[in-house]
Nucleic acid binder design. Structure first.
Length: 287
DNA sequence: CACGATGATTGTGA
DNA sequence: TCACAATCATCGTG
């Protein structure tokens, strides 16, 4: 304490601004020392500033190095906070992965909208795909029967009111179009020959490059690319956009010849009416 | 608590 | 046996 007072009095620990020199000069002047021995003063001032500097650096070091004692209560509090954070993050992750699973299924559904009957292989594939994205959190495996249930419910509920699913259909159409276009672009970049996995890739690419632009973007959640709109437009206008997948080995032979209920009931030009989608996406409420 | 969304179950027909 | 239709059960939300 006394040391502190002394330092303060000496101008060492005082306010740095204005310099200790001025304070010292004032102090010395007040004491009555003459201005004649200015050499001594300058010397003194230099030393003082040096001391000040050392003092402050040391003080800073001390402040930095000083470790605050942490009580166990505080530790517990921090642990609780971290736990809460962790669980919230876990929940978010879980939700996102669940959404990813339905996303996968929806993607398949809408890209096979003309014939949404996945074969056993396809179901297994989808189940595996979903399991990969979902079960990384915990062992909630997606079974094939669940996929079947999902598709059954989806078909029924889609057929029940198509208008309700228009937006979703457009969304996933755009998404699959983008991914397909990316794949096609990659394939085209690699080699001009069509890849066997996408038989209609050439057609798609043609139509895609043929008419782009002049499309007012709606609220399609952009997948990072402004291409999506034009691609969606192109795909929706030009082709049923999933019929090309008929050559897909995963495709079920069930309803291929099907003039059964699904094929006729479904072509609702849901995806093939970009004008409506562009003007009013909210048209689903009209039903 | 009502309501909608969604997964699962059950009955029926081809 | 599979798809469909109806229904139930559960969960999240306003």
């Amino acid at each position: 304490m006394r040391l502190d007072n002394m330092l303060l009095a000496e101008g060492v620990s005082g306010p740095e601004k204005g310099g200790g020199a001025a304070a010292v000069a004032a102090a010395t002047a007040a004491v009555g020392v003459g201005a004649d021995n200015s050499i001594e003063h300058s010397d003194y001032r230099a030393k003082l500033s040096q001391i000040r500097q050392i003092y402050h650096t040391e003080l800073e070091k001390y402040e930095q190095s000083r470790t605050r004692p942490i009580s166990p209560k505080e530790i517990e509090r921090m642990v609780n906070i971290i736990h809460r954070k962790f669980s919230s993050i876990q929940m978010q992750l879980k939700q996102s992965t669940c959404e990813a699973a339905t996303e996968i299924l929806n993607e398949y559904f809408y890209s096979h909208l003309s014939n949404p009957y996945p074969s056993e292989e396809a179901k297994e594939e989808l189940a595996k795909k979903c399991a990969i994205t979902v079960s990384q959190g915990k062992g909630s495996t997606i079974t094939v029967s669940q996929v079947s249930n999902w598709f059954g419910n989806k078909r029924i509920r889609y057929k029940k009111n198509i208008g309700k699913f228009q937006e979703e259909a457009n969304l996933y159409a755009a998404k699959t179009a983008v991914t397909a276009a990316q794949a096609v672009a990659a394939a085209v970049q690699n080699s001009q020959t069509n890849s066997p996995a996408t038989p209609s890739s050439g057609d798609m690419f043609m139509s895609m490059s043929g008419l782009n632009g002049s499309y007012q973007p709606t609220q399609v959640p952009n997948t990072g690319q402004t291409q999506g709109d034009s691609i969606r437009h192109a795909i929706g206008q030009s082709l049923g956009y999933s019929d090309g997948l008929r050559g897909n080995p995963l495709y079920s032979p069930h309803g291929l010849n099907g003039n059964g209920g699904w094929h006729d009931a479904v072509t609702p030009s849901s995806v093939t009416s970009p004008i409506e989608g562009a003007n009013s996406v909210h048209s689903d409420t009209s039903n």
